[in-house]
């Protein structure tokens, strides 16, 4: 194993494998904290919805379904593409990894672009919950505002995670182009992949909460 030790291994590790496993464990633990972060938000969301079902339903009907759905499809595709890149580097195909990362980051940018467009539409429609002239009125106004508080907090937090993910994936692409990764060592590719898939999964949970549940009732 001695040829493994030199380039990528910090001195507290026995070998590159030992270090790689630890890094992946660290990312899983970080994702556990993220589950509790978004979990707290989703729990309060469900709790508030329970007390204000009409307002939440009315609020949800105002969301832009086509953008949310397109973004869901985009993110699932991006995770698939990134996974292709990961499979490629495991057999040493560096160019394939670079292309997959570029495509993944590109899809991420499109996601954020669509998100900005969606926020723009929402604001035009007077759906900002603190607006003096809020779109919904009467009995649905209070719960509707509450729904839109959750909507903006959740989508903004998710967008911040997306932005960090795009930077991370772009960084992987640059390092791959520099020739840092090969079939034997590509821990950062795996670690960033875990993060990207997680951010994708968060959207998979937020999507029904925002766009679907209200429309079904």
């Amino acid at each position: 194993m001695s040829e493994d030790v030199a380039p990528h291994t910090h001195f507290q590790y026995a070998d590159a494998r030992h270090q790689a496993d630890s890094a992946i464990a660290g990312m899983w633990l970080f994702l556990a904290t993220e589950v509790l972060f978004f979990g707290g938000l989703i729990l309060t969301w469900i709790f508030c919805r329970h007390w204000q079902p009409e307002g939440f339903t009315a609020g949800a009907h105002e969301t832009v379904l086509w953008i949310g759905t397109t973004n869901l499809a985009l993110l699932l595709t991006s995770s698939f593409v990134y996974a292709l890149g990961q499979a490629a580097i495991e057999v040493g195909r560096v160019r394939m990894l670079v292309w997959c990362c570029a495509l993944t980051a590109g899809i991420g940018v499109v996601f954020i672009g669509l998100k900005l467009l969606e926020w723009h539409i929402d604001l035009d429609e007077h759906l900002w919950p603190a607006a003096a002239r809020f779109k919904l009125e009467g009995g649905e106004a209070a719960g509707g505002r509450l729904f839109w508080v959750f909507y903006f907090v959740a989508t903004a937090l998710h967008a911040v995670h997306m932005a960090i993910g795009i930077v991370a994936v772009a960084w992987i692409a640059l390092r791959a182009r520099r020739g840092d990764f090969g079939a034997h060592w590509h821990t950062p590719v795996t670690v960033v992949g875990l993060y990207w898939s997680f951010v994708d999964m968060v959207w998979v949970v937020l999507y029904p909460l925002i766009y679907v549940v209200g429309r079904l009732t």
Partner: peptide, 11 residues
């Protein structure tokens, strides 16, 4: 405006 505000149904 927010989720802890009883005026809009928060708690």
């Amino acid at each position: 405006v927010g989720v802890f505000d009883p005026r809009i149904g928060g708690d």
